[in-house]
C-alpha cells in the first residue's frame, strides 16, 4: 500500500446517499482478473443516463476527493469499487457514514474514508463547487480555504498503516508463531473445526 499523509485538491460534490457498490462499478466489470483499468466503468450507469453528471465535468477530472451522503458503499463486497475509485484518482471519500465492508476495502487500497456529520458534509459540498479541500491524516482534520476546520476520528491501527503504507499480510505473517499456537489449541479443543475438507470420508 502506498503511504498516505494528506490529500489535497478538488473534491467531487456528489452528495448522494446510500451509494451501493453496484452503482460504483456494475457487475459486468467484475469479470476482470486484474485490479487495473476499472475507472472507466466507475459510475457507468449514472454517466450514461445523465450527460451533465458531475463525474464528467472537466473541472473534476482527476479530483482526489469524493464527497458523498450517508451509507456510502453499501451492498456487494466487491473490492472492484475501491479499485475503480482509485483508478479515477480518488484517494479519500468524505461521507457521514460508510458500509463496513467498503470502508475496509478502501483502507486496504490506501483510500482514506473520512466520516463527518451531515452539517459538515453540507458545507464541504458548497466549498467543493468552487474550491479545493485539504485532508491531513496526521492531524485528523479536514480544512477549506475559508478557514473551515472539521476533525474526524479514525481507528489508530488503520491510521498507522495508512501513514506508513504498511503491508498488512506481511505484518500478520510476522505473527506466525501466535497463529501456529492457536491452530494447535484449536486442533485439541475443537478438532472437528480443525479438519475442514479433510473430514472423514
Amino acid at each position: 500500500m502506498e503511504a498516505l499523509r494528506a490529500v489535497d485538491g478538488r473534491a467531487i460534490p456528489f452528495g448522494r446517499e446510500n451509494v451501493d457498490t453496484d452503482l460504483i462499478i456494475p457487475a459486468r466489470w467484475l469479470k476482470t482478473i486484474s485490479r487495473e483499468g476499472l475507472g472507466e466503468g466507475a459510475f457507468e450507469a449514472l454517466r450514461a443516463s445523465d450527460p451533465d453528471n458531475i463525474f464528467d465535468q472537466p473541472e473534476y477530472t482527476g479530483a482526489p476527493i469524493l464527497v458523498a451522503g450517508d451509507n456510502f458503499g453499501c451492498g456487494s463486497s466487491r473490492e472492484h469499487a475501491a479499485w475503480a475509485l482509485l483508478d479515477m484518482g480518488i484517494r479519500a471519500v468524505i461521507a457521514p457514514s460508510f458500509s463496513d465492508i467498503f470502508a475496509g476495502n478502501a483502507f486496504k487500497n490506501g483510500i482514506l474514508t473520512v466520516a463527518l456529520p451531515q452539517t459538515a458534509i453540507d458545507r464541504l459540498m458548497e466549498v467543493a463547487a468552487t474550491d479545493p479541500i485539504s485532508i491531513d491524516l496526521e492531524a485528523q482534520s479536514v480544512t477549506t480555504p475559508f478557514q473551515d476546520r472539521f476533525s474526524f476520528e479514525i481507528d489508530p491501527f488503520r491510521k498507522e498503516c495508512l501513514l506508513q503504507g504498511l503491508d498488512e499480510v506481511g505484518l500478520t505473517l510476522a505473527r506466525d508463531a501466535a497463529i501456529t499456537d492457536y491452530e494447535t489449541r484449536l486442533a485439541n479443543a475443537r478438532p472437528w473445526l480443525a479438519r475442514g475438507t479433510a473430514a472423514a470420508a
Partner: peptide, 23 residues
C-alpha cells in the same frame, strides 16, 4: 460469517486470519 474484499481474501489465504475490531 461475513463478506470480505479481495485484499482480505488474500490475507486469509496467506494467514488464515483477519485483523478485525469487534462489531
Amino acid at each position: 460469517a461475513f463478506g470480505i474484499g479481495t485484499s482480505e481474501v488474500e490475507h486469509v489465504l496467506a494467514t488464515q486470519t483477519l485483523l478485525l475490531t469487534p462489531s
